[in-house]
Design a protein around this nucleic acid. Structure first.
Length: 480
RNA sequence: GGCGCCGUAGCCAAGUGGUAAGGCCCGGGACUGCAAAUCCCGUAUGCAUCGGUUCGACUCCGAUCGGCGCCUCCA
């Protein structure tokens, strides 16, 4: 069964169903990182949102072809990589220095994503590998009269594209206003025209082009790689809200100017993250990378959960208190999962609200999917899981669920975990040393040697194993 | 100046024209050797403020106050 998801479309400012050009196969382009430094948790929020989106599309029965670019040539990269080179360094040396920096931070970035259980994209193109495609695209725009050359640089003539501004919902006058703070030293026909190809300057790596040595502009790579790898009609294109203008607006100008038709159907943008009520800034001391948090003892998956349990289109206020809440919420889900994996030890007595567990489960699943399909309403989707946990815990206390009911519940938890990736099936077996300690504690308990029993229990806890004595005298364990 | 978003309990956070989901925290109780886990009970007469529309609004409209974003590189 394939489910249809609806997402807020920045283009129309409406929640609209995602209807792939090819039924059941969604093409997804997400703007990736500029690899000149560590990603911070604000960046990571966007990638986590996109991971949830991709996983949800897949769980809903769609094939997803996902492309995420790696920006490995850009102003800040050049700034940070060329400093130690002599003024007369060869172009080859400059490229080498740039690559050394971007390779390093690409690896770090991918490691961070892995730590957060973000699934890797199907295509992970580097901008520097697609310069010929970009040049061809610019030539195409030039031929169509949408680009012009000035002193070795090429600019996009936005006056030639009536729909320019449709995504950001800006009119020409609104843009004139902002553009008046113009920092660009190049000569352009209009202050709002943007650069497609930049003529090289001393101290920069460059590529040969029909316009002389230079490098690609900031926006052309996504158009070139998106069209090359995903095609002329992309279902979903995503990024952070800050990319709406000018980046995505310019991508539309480039791609649609070249194609002559709609390029992307659904534009989906993730909101920003604040830290403790303030904008994240190095000067405020609230600027965090994933590694900063891990060094503080934060569980990356708790961060993943904390971020994903908030709606992606709302500003998220990251806080350590919120992180703690996330950790505890996860404990509850994981403890419940462990309980369902076990056999249960009901106390007996009729449950006052005897509803068939399978009915509860179906209700929860329906509520969960309705919420996820409605613009990824994760708070509501998670609420359906917690409601189920509350109900089934109570029910299981009174009359133990059957093995079949437990398995069905576990299947639902797995299904939801395919998206949230925060409460996976855990390794069921324990190593011998732990097994021995559990036995030792059992013996001590039987002998009513409470001091020894507690000491062993504490020892296990320090090893990450929490014991739970059940009503029937048996003892279960869970990781925690 | 233009475009847009947000303001729900101590914290986080859904939601709806018909009478406030869920998570965390907190208090009381049950169970337990003690814990852990779990259960039961309690915790916003009210959803920024003031008006209006309506049989009825937190939900629609208007105004006000407060916070934020974009228009410039930025997830």
């Amino acid at each position: 069964m394939r489910r249809t998801l609806s997402l807020f479309n920045t283009l129309t400012r409406r929640i609209e169903p995602v209807v792939p050009v090819l039924a059941g196969q969604v093409s997804l382009y997400t703007c990736g990182p500029t690899v000149y430094n560590y990603a911070h948790i604000g960046n990571l929020r966007t990638f986590l949102f996109q991971d949830l989106l991709k996983r949800t599309l897949r769980a809903a029965g769609h094939e997803v072809r996902h492309c995420m670019n790696i920006t490995d040539v850009e102003d800040k990269i050049i700034r940070d990589s060329q400093g130690t080179l002599p003024a007369d360094a060869t172009n080859e040396a400059r490229h080498g220095a740039m690559k050394a920096l971007t390779d390093r931070f690409t690896a770090i970035f991918l490691e961070d994503l892995d730590t957060l259980r973000v699934q890797q994209a199907d295509f992970l193109p580097k901008a520097t590998a697609y310069v010929p495609h970009m040049i061809r695209l610019i030539q195409d725009l030039e031929a169509k009269g949408l680009a012009y050359v000035r002193e070795g640089s090429v600019y996009y003539r936005i006056a030639g594209l009536p729909q320019y501004g449709c995504l950001a919902h800006l009119d020409r006058e609104g843009m004139q206003m902002g553009a008046s703070v113009d920092a660009d030293e190049y000569e352009r026909d209009s202050a709002t025209d943007f650069v497609l190809w930049k003529a090289t300057k001393p101290g920069e790596p460059w590529w040969d082009s029909p316009w002389g040595p230079g490098r690609p502009g900031w926006h052309i790579e996504c158009s070139a790689m998106g069209m090359e790898l995903l095609g002329d009609r992309i279902d979903i294109h995503s990024g952070g809200v800050d990319l709406i203008f000018p980046h995505h607006e310019n991508e539309i100008a480039q791609s649609e100017g070249c194609l002559g038709h709609r390029w992307v159907n659904h534009w989906v943008h993730g909101e920003f993250l604040m830290v403790e009520g303030q904008k994240m800034a190095k000067s405020l001391g609230n600027f965090f990378t994933l590694r900063d948090l891990v060094a503080k003892g934060v569980d990356p998956i708790a961060l993943r959960y904390a971020i994903q349990s908030n709606h992606y289109r709302k500003v998220l206020n990251f806080s350590f208190e919120g992180l703690r809440a996330a950790e505890n919420a996860l404990k509850r889900i994981r403890a419940f999962r462990k309980r369902m994996e076990g056999e249960g030890a009901a106390g007996g007595g009729p449950w006052k609200e005897a509803i068939d567990p399978r009915v509860r489960l179906e209700r929860a699943r329906e509520a969960f999917w309705a919420a996820m399909a409605d613009d990824l309403n994760t708070p509501e989707a998670l609420a359906s899981i917690f409601t189920l946990i509350n109900d089934l815990n109570a029910q299981d206390d009174h009359a133990a669920l059957t093995r079949e009911e437990r398995d069905a519940t576990l299947a639902f938890l797995d299904e939801a975990n395919d998206m949230f990736a925060a409460w996976p099936r855990e390794e069921a077996s324990l190593d011998a040393a732990v097994e021995a300690l559990i036995e030792a504690r059992k013996a001590a308990k039987f002998a009513k040697d409470w001091a020894l029993a507690d000491r062993v229990r504490d020892q296990l806890r320090a090893m990450g194993i929490v014991l739970e004595d059940r009503k029937d005298g048996s003892t279960g364990w869970r990781r925690g």
